[in-house]
Nucleic acid binder design. Sequence first.
DNA 1: TCAATAGTGTCTGTTAGACATTATGGA
DNA 2: TCCATAATGTCTAACAGACACTATTGA
Lengths: 234, 234
Amino acid sequence: MRERSLVVARPAVRSLTAAVDLVLLTPRDGSLAVLLLKAADPRARDRWLLPWDAPRPEEPPDQAAIRLSRGVLGVPPAALEQIAAFGDGRRHPGDAQLSVSFVGLVPHGPASHTTDGAVWVDVEQLPLMAPRHRVIVDAAVDVVRKRIDQSPLAFRLLPPSFTLSELQAIYELLLGRSLHKASFRRALQAAFLVEPIDEWRSEGRGRPAQLYRYAPKRRRGMRRGVRFDLISSD
Amino acid sequence: MRERSLVVARPAVRSLTAAVDLVLLTPRDGSLAVLLLKAADPRARDRWLLPWDAPRPEEPPDQAAIRLSRGVLGVPPAALEQIAAFGDGRRHPGDAQLSVSFVGLVPHGPASHTTDGAVWVDVEQLPLMAPRHRVIVDAAVDVVRKRIDQSPLAFRLLPPSFTLSELQAIYELLLGRSLHKASFRRALQAAFLVEPIDEWRSEGRGRPAQLYRYAPKRRRGMRRGVRFDLISSD
DNA sequence: TCAATAGTGTCTGTTAGACATTATGGA
DNA sequence: TCCATAATGTCTAACAGACACTATTGA
């Protein structure tokens, strides 16, 4: 078996064309929006693009993602997570063989100052895009939904002090479903994630809401038994 | 801001050196083992390596990972999941700028036939390796533990028919902790993942165990409220 | 006073985990 | 017979989700 000994021999690195593709998400009008750029050339095959670029020499991919965010928004994202590397046949706007993709979360405030040609689009109403960019956006939303209960992503979208209703709204947006108010607050208490500060905020009509701040205490003990939720049917 | 308009202009792809690195895991002696290769050159900086290679022209990274597995084991892995792309400063044995890494699961049977220079090593007792390979192995175990309850990874490590005790042992191995027998079986029943076949297997002393086969029915409804387990402390 | 939102108390069905018990083979 | 393993029944504490209720403001 010649194939098998080849592997033990010293492999040699090889070059390929690579891009860093960035999915910036922000809460907007009660739903999640992704930042898309309009192609400079109107005759371009793909009218709408994710921000992307080739990493510069010696530049790690996550640094390239941050640079992309600064380029379109002027600020780095409040949270940045790698999605995956996509290198299948699906077409990339720059025909990169490999796409290292990231998802960045952006709070609502600074999100409005974008460069020309950049628009926030509801993730449920995407326009026609390059096939690879399309799957990257879908994967980005999946990544956020899977990691939200294991990293403080939601808090990065809020100012230092916030009401529990605001926090719940962010969770509902990122998870894509509504949560039960009392259960949400009980779970929060049990997790020792937030603590109340001595301030209240009155917003229009109802009773003023107490403000909280993110103050994670030591993590709780082990999670319990195996849950077989959401098993994919292979 | 000149920086900002640069992004809207058409980026150009650029080449960089890339590798595909593969973490093959198998159950062995009651713990998880990873396949390492001994460096061909004994004066090499890194004595122990993960199987890796540059992807061939036009070859998707996952295909390169399967090719690597065939090279060292003669067979493709029973399950393959992408870990991530690592492109930070940590040193790679081939000095690749970017590592697209995969974790493959291999059942115990065929796992013994390895090429010369390939050994199975307990993941808890890793030898000195290149820094990037070290973080890739750690990330591989994390990926398996996070995806095991959302994809049928455990079943890929078992023959078509198996006892529930064998299945539980695989879960315990992959999760790295012991599970409660009655709860495990209840969860299994509730998930409609397996069905009994009309066979029993007697193994040594005790009562013979009924054999089961993997037969996932339609997935269950939504999972319930937010769980704040295992929140990382930022 | 009403409307609207914040926040809490209580009940119920589900279930994880503990424990005990039965079942069934081999030594 | 004793022992080891399989498999199941029962109890309890924890908890998600539902519902109702109180609290507190602006209109």
